[in-house]
Amino acid sequence: MENNYTYAIEAKNLVKKYKGFELNIPDFEIPKGFTTALIGENGAGKTTLLNMLAGLKLDYKGNIRFFDTNDAADETVKERIGYTGPGCYFLPQWTIRQVGEISELLFDGFDKTRYEEICGELGITKEKLGGKGKKVSDLSDGNRMKLMIAGVLARETQLLIMDEPASPLDPLMRDELCNRIRAYIEQGNGDKTVLCSTHNIADMENVTDYAIIMEHGKIVEEGFVEDLKEKYILIKGDVQDADKIQEYLYDCNKSSYGFEGMILSENLDKLAGTDISTETPTLSQISVAVMRANTDLKLKR
């Protein structure tokens, strides 16, 4: 891939400390016009990072810039960023209609008609939910997430920061979310960007262009998906061969039928003489391999 893109987000020397955890990212860049997936196990620091980027947390060190020119402290930046959180950020007593009214007051680029259309398309209208005003507290986790998604998609934004948007959604809605993210990027003609964190990359893989894998508050791998799929190769073979090439395996799963492992492409020539088959891995498989290689957890293989 040619290096001719600019960055929706550029951050340097990001540091934030909690008790027993430190987020430390020297360089962080999100390419403009693409969908970036932020992948990591629980406690990797994804939500911490997204909260810093969305301006919800200010107690960090480092410098964040948006859209090539705007400092994070610039108030106009928030108007161009849509954020959805891991939990619902609306007051429980608000109704769906109230969310629209308040959003219209909070954001200049909010289109209430579009919001109502999207709520209808996602099935979160009072008619479809059983009548009455339907308060946020009456909605399921999935419907609350749909409400947040409707709220950000009804705004004129250039960047969507979404923290675990797919987690509470059913499979149909996950697919719909991917379609809407794709449509958002296409509408922007290279000017709109999506950054979303996810536990389950398999659901978001078909819409992800760029991936960042985090562990223990650090970025351990990143790149365009096509480049990552060239960098890593999935190999399969007999168990006895696994022992021979253990040192080159990035990750390995053994069973009585054989082994399956991840290897860097540059080490493929070192497997000469072994009876293995190769496959292009999925982003999900790459993520798991990288996370396994970097995790502290004692996982069974």
Partner: peptide, 16 residues
Amino acid sequence: SNLTAYMKTSSKGEHM
């Protein structure tokens, strides 16, 4: 409290 979380996402939140 997570009460003002949504309002924090807007530059007008504190003023509002």
